[in-house]
Design a protein around this nucleic acid. Structure first.
Lengths: 143, 143
DNA sequence: CTACTTGCAAACTTTTTGCTTGCGA
DNA sequence: TCGCAAGCAAAAAGTTTGCAAGTAG
């Protein structure tokens, strides 16, 4: 993710009256510089070198705030813990059922589904979510 | 859900060598007769009148088996606990962001998304999942 | 300076596990 | 009768909370 996007995020935080701390900055830039959709535990372990004293609560607190400010999205799959994604463009995920890898892909044309849902249920539709499940190319090779 | 479908489910269980018990039957028919996509806790409370001594572990055990035999699906939304759905037809859900109600809706035409995902990521696609979020008609009325 | 943040530990929630007793076929 | 299933409680695992101490602005 570009440095420019991180600057934008920092402005949003400042605008919301949020104080910047080294931990907060590290969590944010870690999320914005990875494509791996990490769990809280993965963030915790990854930043443990830089901040040995950082607690998981700090990560949870910050992620919740980032979510409220629409800087990150929380992904909940069947597995036990949530994953987080700082890519806020409209995109979707393909999840490997063998190794758990998550890859992004882009697709447009799902707004029709929202319309259909609205018509058939009477809901005022706000958003949608979709994922594709399968086996990634690496796992297909290993028989 | 029709009694016929319950009979089919019972045959599948019998065929898999699964022994029938009153609790198991109650959990299964409860799921097959509701459209509410209940959580474990809701099932537990609903059947508590009939089986005061039933433990949550029994519900978890049975649901896991039902899932393995493809009799129910587990739904994981952002909220804390899983929900379960015995409607195995291909269908989707609209979730109300205010009251949490989940309604079914039907739509065909998402197989193209699977193809697109496969082409762009190299995954061997197996399934997909999608949900629409919004506000249900009841919650729209209450200002 | 002072209110927001962090770190820590305890609490809570959901789900899983181990083991004994019970009961369906 | 025999082995799968239920009940129970303890343990995991993930997340939230309360409070004292630290620090950004």
């Amino acid at each position: 993710m570009s440095a420019e996007q991180i600057q934008t995020a920092l402005k949003i935080l400042k605008g919301a009256g949020v104080r910047m701390t080294p931990q907060r900055h590290a969590i944010l830039s870690y999320l914005m510089n990875t494509k791996s959709h990490p769990t809280v535990d993965e963030i915790y372990k990854s930043l443990g070198g830089k901040f040995p004293s950082m607690s998981v609560a700090t990560i949870y607190n910050n992620l919740k705030m980032f979510k409220d400010l629409d800087l990150v999205k929380e992904l909940t799959y069947g597995d036990s813990s949530s994953r987080f994604d700082a890519n806020m463009e409209e995109h979707y995920h393909v999840v490997c059922l063998k190794c758990g890898t998550i890859e992004d892909f882009y697709y447009s044309g799902l707004h029709q589904v929202e319309e259909e849902a609205s018509t058939s249920t009477g809901f005022k539709v706000i958003s949608h979510r979709m994922e594709v499940y399968g086996v990634c190319s690496d796992c297909q090779v290993q028989h």
